[in-house]
């Protein structure tokens, strides 16, 4: 861990300005990142700093914004989640558990109780990949950490890596769970930047690796995420998060699916929402699979053929081919289970 300047921001305006100032004083990006970072729960950022993977010159602590930006508001129109809300606060919220089950479950099934009490949901969606080659600086080839250096995972040990959305420069999996719920539910992100507040569809927040895997989001320097807004919809209650992993708890997903269904009285699917985790480089929406379900009765066969569509473009590497079959089974299982929910 390198020495860094630590500042506290009491408001989000101050935070964005501080970042701007941080960038102005030290313009050379390190490892392809801006030299100043916001610090929320710190469970990802400090970890990566201790490993010397991230070397920000300046940290702007935004936990002072918690009061202003951690409210959980449920209205008939939308669910609004302040970005500094703790993962546990959202996961344990009775109304969210009941009316937005996929949101609560994606957080309950993530990390550990201790981490969920520490970590913010804003930091959660921005957490960085668990690719071991990225997290250990003694591997020289990692385009995400060190642009242009290559990718050790391509022909290395890649059981955990992505089969969807990968490029020849990076196959790292997006590790988080909550993002899949936001993705499936058409969430919108409220961002406060140096030029004021704006909203961004959650699906536009993360960037596929392409040839610049070091650039992970469309956020600009000084952008603070202040909230996530999930518009109310008919499929909310019939939703769930299915997470498959080697052990029962405290592991990132090998494959996961956030699904939400609107099924009419005749048992036909009116609307379906599916997002995939553990298998893709970014939070991944399976729109073809969703479309294929509309108007059909959701039985295991339709679920399975939709699941197959979800993995249409999947490209396996040496150790992760099982994720294609596993991902399909996960989607199938999630859909079939969601269809049987009492709502």
């Amino acid at each position: 861990m390198r020495p860094f300047v630590y500042e506290r921001a009491a408001t989000s305006e101050v935070a964005t300005q501080a970042i701007r100032a941080g960038i102005a004083t030290d313009t050379a990006p390190r490892q392809g990142r801006y030299p100043a970072e916001f610090l929320a729960g710190g469970t990802n950022l400090l970890d990566l700093m201790k490993l010397d993977v991230m070397q920000p010159a300046k940290l702007i602590d935004i936990t002072g914004l918690t009061q202003a930006h951690s409210a959980i508001l449920v209205s008939p129109q939308a669910l609004r989640l302040g970005a500094l809300a703790k993962m546990s606060a959202v996961a344990d919220h009775p109304e969210i558990i009941k009316n937005f089950p996929v949101v609560a479950q994606s957080l309950t099934l993530a990390a550990s109780a201790q981490l969920r009490n520490m970590a913010s949901i804003g930091g959660n969606v921005l957490q960085r990949t668990r690719c071991s080659y990225f997290r250990d600086t003694s591997w020289s080839a990692c385009n995400k950490r060190n642009p242009g250096s290559g990718c050790a995972a391509l022909d290395g040990y890649n059981r955990g890596h992505a089969v969807l959305g990968a490029s020849k420069d990076c196959i790292a999996t997006y590790p988080g769970d909550f993002a899949q719920a936001l993705m499936a539910l058409d969430a919108v992100v409220t961002v406060l930047g140096p030029d004021g507040t704006r909203t961004v569809p959650f699906s536009d927040l993360h960037r596929a690796p392409g040839s610049t895997p070091n650039v992970e989001t469309t956020l600009r320097p000084g952008d603070v995420i202040t909230a996530f807004v999930i518009p109310a919809a008919t499929w909310m209650r019939r939703s769930l998060y299915m997470k498959i992993r080697d052990r029962q708890s405290y592991q990132f997903a090998l494959a996961s699916a956030a699904v939400a269904l609107d099924i009419d009285d005749g048992g036909l699917v009116r609307q379906a929402r599916i997002a995939l985790g553990g298998v893709a480089t970014v939070p991944w929406r399976a729109r073809d699979a969703e479309a294929a379900l509309v108007g059909k009765k959701l039985d295991p066969q339709t679920a399975e053929s939709a699941a197959r569509l979800a993995f249409g473009g999947a490209a396996p590497r040496e150790h992760n081919a099982f994720k294609i079959a596993l991902g399909q089974k996960t989607v199938t299982r999630a859909l079939v289970q969601a269809a049987t929910l009492e709502v």
Binding site: R130, S132, Y133, R135, D136, W139, A152, D155, G156, Y157, R159, G160, D246, R247, Q248, S249, Y250, Q251, F252
Partner: peptide, 25 residues
């Protein structure tokens, strides 16, 4: 312990990636 056979190096060298049973198991 996962081995990168090209490099003859271990890969999952922390307790998040080297899996042992947790209470739920």
């Amino acid at each position: 312990t996962d081995i990168d056979t090209n490099a003859a190096r271990y890969v999952n060298t922390d307790l998040a990636e080297y899996l042992i049973p947790v209470n739920a198991d």
